[in-house]
């Protein structure tokens, strides 16, 4: 949904009915969070508080490698915390959402709702 010419973080300006410039809602979308799989991971974790690798993989329909890469990106941005452990002799990876992750998710959802509000409000 980011305009093609806009790089992440660009403040896309729009003029509203009163003639005042305000940033386009898409400029508030964070590329790290906005990506479909990563947004899904954050949504699931925000509700479940913590989930293991297998649960996320099956609920989001991702492959091991795909999920692993997305988790690396999210963990690198401090949005989730990954903890590797064992369940008996089998490795088990638990993922929890951080406070920053919750905040980023809330911002993302607010930006999407603002986009819809702007369109439906005319």
């Amino acid at each position: 949904m980011t305009p093609p010419d806009a790089s992440p973080g660009d403040q896309v300006q729009a003029t509203n009915a009163s003639g005042r410039d305000e940033p386009h809602p898409t400029s508030r979308l964070d590329d790290v969070v906005h990506q479909k799989a990563r947004l899904g991971i954050l949504v699931v974790l925000a509700e479940a508080e913590r989930a293991d690798f297998t649960y996320l993989k099956s609920n989001l329909g991702l492959t091991d490698g795909n999920l692993g890469r997305h988790l690396e990106v999210l963990a690198g941005s401090g949005l989730v915390h990954v903890e590797k452990g064992y369940a008996g002799r089998r490795p088990r990876t638990w993922v929890t959402i951080t406070r920053a992750g919750r905040h980023a998710l809330a911002e993302e959802m607010a930006a999407i709702r603002e986009l819809l509000r702007r369109f439906e409000g005319g």
Binding site: K36, L39, E47, I112, L116, F119
Partner: peptide, 26 residues
């Protein structure tokens, strides 16, 4: 002036629907 494109809106609605589905399941 409304500069929001129909494609943006359809995508936004799809994202909201999917997140709601994931949220409900979790």
């Amino acid at each position: 002036m409304n500069d929001t494109q129909p494609d943006d809106v359809a995508a936004a609605k799809a994202v909201l629907a999917r997140t709601e589905q994931l949220r409900r399941a979790a």
